[in-house]
Computed example of a mutant assay.
Amino acid sequence: MKIRKFHMQYFLRTSTILLLIILTACNQQPKSKKTPTTTPVKDSIAQAKERAANLAKEEQEEEKPFVLTEENAIPFFFEYQKTHKQSKVKVYTSMGDFVIDLYDNTPYHRANMIYLSSKKYFNNTFFHRVVKDFIIQGGNTDLKMTAEKRDSIGFYLLPPDTRKGHKHVRGTVSMPSSDDVTNPHKLASPYEFFIVTTKTGAPHLNGKFTAFGMVTSGMDVVDKINHVETGSDEWPLTNVIIDSIVVID
């Protein structure tokens, strides 16, 4: 009888211990499920990578250079002319210097000349067309670097502004445009300009091209350029170089 009682007590104690172990294990298992450690780390790394990618994209967009186009040129110059009121430039050439006063009431063409001069576009361009006793035309070359500068600034045209009362008298600075079916509205080429040298002016150009300035000093230099020897294509046999055009006022 005593032996049977001992076995019963031993059995009860053993059962109690096993039950406690099972309950403890059951209580511990959910805790491990409630405290994951790997997922937040993965999420943090993914979020950091995403933030870095977004930052790199923003920096790349900020560094992308501004380029003028047919769509943005007019809005750009509309704002540019408000804050850039300069109206006088000095043209330095291989044959001497002269000064151009720009008209305030042709704002897009004035702003265009100020902008391109500030961007140093005209540096090392030529007076590439000379017609004796008529005009000299500058702003182009046959050099690769000129084409590259145009590419970096952008491709755009300017609308004519011919109703401001400016005539093509001697010394007038005007902007050329192509005269063909591909340009019915005579949009102007912004990278070039011409200067009238005829003593009686060129009234047949009125209303066709935008006069946007006047040579006010150094017309003798313009005349000297107008008398250089040219080939049959009206290109001077010896290049007349525009060293720079500098905004002075």
Rank of each mutant, 00 (worst) to 15 (best):
T69G: 10
Y115C: 08
S94M: 14
Y92S: 15
I245D: 01
A46F: 04
K120R: 05
D101T: 11
E192S: 03
S244Y: 08
A53M: 08
V41D: 06
L12C: 08
E62L: 15
H7Q: 12
T39G: 00
N206H: 02
H204T: 02
P40G: 00
F78M: 00
K34I: 07
H84C: 04
P160Y: 03
E50Q: 13
Q137E: 15
R129Q: 13
Q28S: 07
G96M: 11
F66P: 02
H109W: 13
R150S: 01
I195H: 02
F193W: 14
T125M: 08
T93I: 05
R163P: 00
F193G: 07
R110G: 05
R170Q: 15
A56F: 02
V67K: 13
I17S: 09
E71D: 15
V169Y: 13
A147G: 15
Y115G: 08
A53F: 03
E229F: 08
S44C: 05
K224H: 13
D101A: 13
Q9K: 11
T162L: 04
V222D: 01
T146Q: 02
I136C: 01
T238V: 08
N226D: 15
E62T: 01
I153T: 13
T38F: 09
T16S: 14
Q86T: 03
E61W: 02
Q9T: 12
M145E: 10
E70A: 10
P65T: 09
H168T: 13
F209S: 07
A202L: 07
I242Y: 04
I242L: 00
R110C: 04
Q29W: 10
F98T: 06
T172W: 11
V130P: 03
T93F: 00
K119F: 04
K119E: 10
V173F: 10
N72C: 00
T24W: 01
L143R: 15
I21V: 13
A147N: 14
N123L: 05
R170H: 04
N105C: 06
K167A: 12
R163F: 05
K5C: 03
E148L: 05
L68A: 05
M214I: 10
S189Y: 12
A202F: 04
T230K: 14
N72F: 04
T182A: 04
L18T: 05
G138N: 03
F6G: 09
I114M: 05
Q81N: 13
H128F: 13
K120Y: 01
K2T: 08
V228I: 11
H128S: 12
L157W: 00
R129D: 04
Y191H: 09
K33A: 01
R110F: 02
D223Y: 07
I74G: 00
D243M: 03
K167G: 06
M214P: 03
N124R: 11
H185S: 14
V240E: 04
K90W: 07
P75E: 09
V222H: 02
Y121R: 05
E58N: 14
K5P: 03
P36D: 09
C26H: 06
L12G: 01
H84D: 02
T198A: 00
A48K: 11
N112S: 15
F212G: 03
